[in-house]
């Protein structure tokens, strides 16, 4: 493209560019400005020393490490539990598939807050699970199932596993079942056919699901706040504490910048392996339509 042509285009943008301007303007004002404000605030309220404080603060360092640790656990569990579920959906008759898909969508469309609230009801000391175990005589005293890492993992995996399942399912549907049959016809046992044919071919879906679950885990607030213990808070909770409780928006903003940088850096690396379009579903459906 020659520069005079670019110049002409810049002076007279085409119709579709003009159609996009209101949308771009809205996102920049309603979303871009708040993001820039956080960065500015982290550096000027009162000074860039906010960051210096963060990196010497033992509590913040621990909550940052804990956040990554929880996100990794949630991602691992979501993929491990989600894969067989997606496989059962992709390789079964219409009846079982309908049931599995129905349960998945019912759960997926129940609000996050309601599901987290429900786990509170289920796991509390006087909750359904403890009552049941006490009645059955399995335990004498209620198990500490809530206000700890266990409850956070249960709640977060429950909310995030559908994202992994849907990504893996889309990928498995694209794997030709005849390839597996071919492997078996040639003498591979079902397990071998799965490990050497199906699993490798479904890896793009696994990767896309894992990246999405990991990124969403990093920013989780609701579930850890309701089900987690007061001692093991995550970065998102630290941010809210700084802004709402300690009234220190500068430090809160610096934490937000760190969290945002973590998310974007991870996405940048992940996009080298899996297309971002696939992760976010922009291009995910095109192959199948």
């Amino acid at each position: 493209m020659t520069s005079p042509e670019t110049g002409r285009r810049l002076r007279r943008p085409d119709f579709w560019t003009l159609a996009g301007l209101p949308g771009l303007l809205f996102v920049l004002l309603a979303f871009g400005v708040p993001m820039v404000t956080i960065v500015v605030r982290s550096l000027t309220d009162p000074s860039p020393e906010n960051f210096q404080f963060l990196f010497t603060d033992e509590l913040f360092r621990r909550s940052l490490l804990r956040t990554v640790y929880v996100a990794l656990l949630v991602t691992g569990l979501s993929v491990l539990l989600g894969y067989p579920y997606a496989y059962a959906m992709a390789r079964s008759g219409p009846v079982l598939r309908t049931w599995l898909m129905g349960a998945l969508l019912l759960s997926f469309w129940t609000s996050l807050l309601v599901r987290t609230f429900a786990w509170g009801v289920l796991l509390s000391n006087t909750g359904v699970v403890n009552d049941l175990l006490l009645d059955l005589g399995v335990i004498d005293q209620p198990l500490p199932l809530i206000r700890n890492l266990f409850a956070v993992l249960v709640g977060m995996v429950h909310v995030l596993v559908p994202f992994a399942i849907l990504a893996i399912y889309a990928s498995l549907r694209g794997v030709d079942a005849e390839l597996e049959q071919a492997a078996q016809v040639m003498g591979a046992r079902p397990a071998r056919a799965f490990w050497h044919v199906t699993l490798p071919l479904s890896m793009p879906g696994v990767a896309a699901g894992a990246v999405l679950v990991f990124v969403l885990s990093l920013g989780f607030y609701l579930t850890p706040a309701l089900l987690g213990g007061p001692a093991d808070i995550l970065v998102s909770q630290s941010i809210v504490l700084q802004v709402q409780q300690y009234l220190d928006p500068g430090v809160g903003s610096a934490m937000a910048v760190v969290l945002l940088a973590l998310v974007l850096a991870f996405l940048a690396i992940a996009s080298k392996v899996v297309g971002l379009g696939r992760i976010l579903g922009v291009t995910g459906k095109e192959g199948t339509s």
Binding site: A88, A90, S92, L96, A103, T110, A118, H158
Partner: peptide, 26 residues
Amino acid sequence: MRAGLFVRVFGLVFAAILIIPTVVVT
């Protein structure tokens, strides 16, 4: 190729766990 019995049973159990919170709250 159909999913094995074990995988199908796992799917059903996990499906139950997925909807339990919604059912309990309701």
